[in-house]
Simulated assay, not measured.
Amino acid sequence: MAEDYRELRQAAERIAREAGELLLGHYGRVEAREKGPSDLVTEADLASQRLIAGRLAEAFPGHTLLAEEEGVTPDPDRPWRWIVDPLDGTVNFAHRYPIWTVSIGLEHRGMLVAGAIYAPLTGTMWSAGLGGGATVDGQPARVSTADRLRNCLISAAFPTRFGPDAPRQLALMGRYSDGTHSVRRSGSTAWNLAQLASGGCDVTFGTHVNPWDVAAGVLIVREAGGRVTGLDGGEYDLYRPEILASNGPVHDEAAQAAREAIAASAS
């Protein structure tokens, strides 16, 4: 099975790297505009997506695409679906805050089978193929061995528009900050998942994520030995907005903490 997806994984890596080089050429040279309240886009996002879409269409003309920008939606009759965030961390990019990535995942008949996350500023590439393990810069990637939540560093994908959901967000932040090694908010969900896959953090969660934010990262975390569910610990659905990912051993404890926080925020 690992061999089946090798070419697809390599294509994701190659195209993510090319898009990353394009983004580096725009870094510090573009202005952002709002496509919605507090939701930024730049010409770099659009140029990156167009490049990725073109390369994928050339290499895999029978496949379809789901992507963040320009209303790109997939053909439901095509079983191979690329799920792309051409620039995850646009707000960071626009402010020259140095955490942003390119994320390219591939789904086949509802199953994630290949993915790559590229961080252009460091040249770091995470990737995975179903059954073939995960790598970071070509070396095996593995999640951490932390076995209790109190020993964990946690990363959060808080929504940009925090206010409408403030009670729940603050409850989660408070619960995960209490008795742990603290919480980090990077501004890039793909980055959070990549860090989890290579041991940089032990748990990551999000409440308002999109498929393109997480498709590649979910597969990479799984192939690195981690676990992915809904925020409450239930079955994971790529097309729902909540996610909880961990190294595995702390997952049940992390899910219980999330359930407690959400219940407290609603009372």
Rank of each mutant, 00 (worst) to 15 (best):
A215E: 04
R184N: 10
A257Q: 06
Y97V: 12
R168N: 12
P140K: 07
K35F: 12
K35A: 10
A156M: 10
T64C: 04
S177G: 15
N247L: 02
G105L: 01
R33V: 11
E69F: 00
A197M: 07
G110P: 13
L87F: 02
S155M: 15
A11E: 13
W82H: 08
L231P: 08
V228R: 04
G25I: 01
L65V: 03
T42W: 00
K35C: 07
F60Q: 04
T180I: 06
R6W: 11
G25S: 14
P249Q: 03
R96V: 11
V84G: 04
V143I: 09
A44D: 02
T124S: 14
S144K: 03
A263D: 15
E34C: 01
E43Y: 05
T135L: 03
C152H: 02
S246K: 10
V228P: 07
L56D: 02
P241K: 02
G115Y: 01
N192V: 01
T189C: 14
I15S: 03
R175N: 07
H63V: 01
Q139L: 13
H63L: 06
A94M: 05
E68C: 06
W80R: 13
R222V: 02
G20F: 10
T122H: 13
F93S: 05
L238W: 09
G115M: 06
P164L: 13
G226R: 02
Y239V: 12
R29V: 03
E34K: 05
V203L: 00
G199C: 09
N210M: 13
Y27E: 00
A263P: 06
L149Y: 08
V91H: 13
A194S: 13
E34S: 04
E43P: 05
T135S: 11
P167V: 14
I104G: 06
Q195N: 09
L46E: 11
I220T: 07
V84P: 07
E253G: 10
N151G: 15
V41N: 00
A245I: 02
D45C: 03
L65S: 04
G199I: 05
E21A: 12
G62K: 02
T122C: 03
R9Y: 04
L153W: 12
S188R: 03
E70I: 06
H95D: 01
L66C: 01
Y118N: 05
D165A: 12
L219W: 00
G36R: 14
